[in-house]
Amino acid sequence: MSEIITGNNVDVLRTMKGGYVDLTVTSPPYEDLRKYNGFSLDFDGLVSELYRVTKEGGVVVWVVGDKTVKGSESGMSFRQALKFIDAGFRLHDTMIYEKDSLSFPDKTRYNQIFEYMFVFSKSRPKTINLIKDRPNKHANGRKHIKGNYRTADGQTKRHNKQNLLQPLGVRNNIWRISTGCNKSTTDKEAYKHPAIFPEKLANDHIITWSNEGDVVLDPFGGSGTTAKMAALNNRQYIHIDCSEDYNEIARGRLAKV
């Protein structure tokens, strides 16, 4: 059953039975934004509860960036990733979400246009539907691709890369996604939220790490993007946010689905 719930995410998750959620796709408030409409983030408690409610083989996609403090990045994203590992999750993949625009040019460093997408799994992922949309330059009607690879003891051996013959291959783990007005979403009401989750990002993770009928969670539901894309892909959703104002935005978007 799909739900939009107002409340502190840790408290809400503690009411759920263990091993219930197939996939979590979320992005937490960053750094000093952890006090969010009067609520503070209990990060350790959240990670512990996410591990408990995630099914064996379930996945958590954690999209996060770092704040720059006194000219240096905080490294909070990596600290959070290590906390997930300490809690028992495997770091299945470290992915990059590349934006097509930048908010604030920096005079002392290269322009910051990406965030991390840490993909954690509770044991080996039970669902992997990798998206194949990368043009394969090696196809061209050839029957096989020959090449070399090096074994663990340093020897060189020949191989035939038959998988390279497909016209479209599995995409890389750097995803370039358009952001901004009418690009993250066409839902006008969503822009009342200060940090909109791009629909394409949520959509592509949902179809990669879950199947129809699965339960998709967003403990920082915000404007409801994860819930909306879960519904559009025939998944159940659990949307949690401490702000009733933001949940009203989410309900309005879900009503259109």
Rank of each mutant, 00 (worst) to 15 (best):
R251P: 08
T186I: 08
R176A: 12
N172H: 12
A190T: 01
F197G: 01
D218C: 02
K132W: 07
S123M: 11
Y20L: 14
A231C: 03
F84I: 04
K137R: 14
P219C: 05
L46K: 00
D93E: 15
P198G: 02
K200I: 12
K126D: 06
Y51E: 01
N111E: 08
G213I: 04
N247S: 04
V216M: 06
N9Q: 12
R251E: 04
A202Y: 00
V216N: 04
D32Q: 14
K183C: 08
L164W: 13
G75R: 01
L232C: 12
F220Y: 12
A231E: 05
C242H: 12
R52Q: 04
I145A: 05
L102K: 12
A87R: 09
D100S: 09
D93W: 04
I174M: 13
Q166K: 15
L23F: 02
A139E: 02
I207W: 00
S48D: 11
T6M: 01
G75P: 10
D86Y: 11
E189Q: 13
N211R: 06
N9D: 07
K143D: 14
N111Q: 10
K107P: 06
T186C: 06
D245A: 10
N173L: 09
H193M: 09
A152K: 13
A152P: 07
N233Q: 13
F220H: 09
I207L: 00
I113M: 14
V119S: 03
K107C: 13
T156Q: 14
D93A: 15
L13G: 07
G180C: 07
T127K: 08
N172R: 12
V47A: 00
N163E: 10
K67W: 00
Y110P: 11
M229P: 04
G57C: 02
R14P: 02
G252T: 01
I196V: 15
G224N: 10
F104S: 12
G7V: 09
E115F: 04
T26I: 00
D204M: 08
V215K: 00
E98N: 15
I177F: 11
D11K: 11
R171N: 11
I128L: 15
T68Q: 13
R158Q: 14
A202W: 09
M229Y: 02
S40P: 06
K126T: 08
V257F: 02
E31L: 06
E244T: 09
G65Y: 01
I113P: 01
S243V: 08
Y237N: 03
Q112K: 12
G141L: 03
K137H: 14
T24L: 02
T225Y: 03
K228Q: 05
R79S: 12
D42E: 03
A87G: 08
G221L: 02
S48V: 04
A231W: 05
D106G: 11
M1R: 14
R134V: 10
D133Y: 10
Y110M: 07
R14H: 07
R176P: 00
I207D: 05
K188T: 14
F120K: 05
R235G: 01
N233E: 07
